[in-house]
Simulated scan of single mutants.
Amino acid sequence: MRETDVTAQDAEKRATRVRNRRGEGGRLREDIIDAAAALLDETGDERAITLRSVARKIGIAAPSIYPHFPDQPAIMLAVVQREFAALETHLRAAVEEAGDDPRDRLYALCRAYLRYAQDHPERYRTMFGGLWIPTLGDSSLTEEELTTLGATALQLLADALAGCVVAGQSSIADPPLDAVTLWICLHGLAHQQAATRIFPWPAERVADAIITRVAKLKDATTAE
């Protein structure tokens, strides 16, 4: 081994020890999540997120992660949970900004959802599956942790649809079920926009058509 290699390794170890002390305590858990999210943005591949790569990103030894996360899927779950919280904040802000009209609030929420997917393509893909979700029993994750992901965001959509029904602007009969249907349609559009270099129609018009038809929105003049 060359002397320069030994010197580089020693320098790396010294830097690691310093950064490890700086990251100790409750802050280290957030540092781990930040590092995993950054790796996801950089590589676009959740397979690149390992205990070793996250530890290297922060400048700690890999075993230092275990008191905070038992395995890699647990880190990914934390990244996804935090991203869903950010999505929910984004959707709530869009709805509040839209004003009091239920129709406007529904459109604003759906458009904000699509905008979020477009602005954060790698994280969005990971939020809704990706390659990180393991078979139950193969990791520390529980079925409840996985099945409740995005539940609050979906409830916001169901509430927006119910508001349109109460206002006489929509003829749907089952807001929770129709919220799932509308989300699937929006998710399909978001995926297609990300996967297709040249989208065949103006995405905004397609989105509005999806919202109007799935939500069974009545014409503004007849809803009054």
Rank of each mutant, 00 (worst) to 15 (best):
Q118W: 09
T196V: 15
R27H: 08
W201D: 12
I211A: 00
R105V: 03
S170C: 13
P202M: 11
R56Q: 07
V166I: 15
A78M: 07
L77F: 13
S170P: 06
P121W: 11
R47Y: 07
T148Y: 04
L161H: 03
D34I: 04
R14L: 12
A158D: 12
V80F: 03
P63E: 07
V18E: 10
S64T: 14
T147Y: 05
A98L: 10
R125S: 14
A207M: 14
V79Q: 02
R105G: 03
A173R: 15
Q118V: 09
D104T: 05
D41S: 12
I33Y: 03
D178T: 15
D5E: 15
A173T: 14
Q118F: 09
A160H: 03
D119W: 03
H187N: 10
I33A: 12
R19I: 01
E145T: 03
A179S: 13
R14C: 03
L109S: 03
I172H: 00
Y124Q: 04
E88Y: 12
E143G: 12
I58M: 06
F69A: 02
A94K: 01
A86R: 15
L51D: 06
A35H: 02
H187M: 11
R47M: 07
D100H: 13
L149A: 09
E224Q: 11
V95Q: 08
T152Y: 10
L114W: 01
A173S: 14
L141E: 01
A179R: 01
A85S: 13
L177E: 09
T152H: 07
D71Y: 08
A173E: 14
M127C: 00
V95D: 02
S53W: 02
A207W: 07
S171A: 13
Q81D: 14
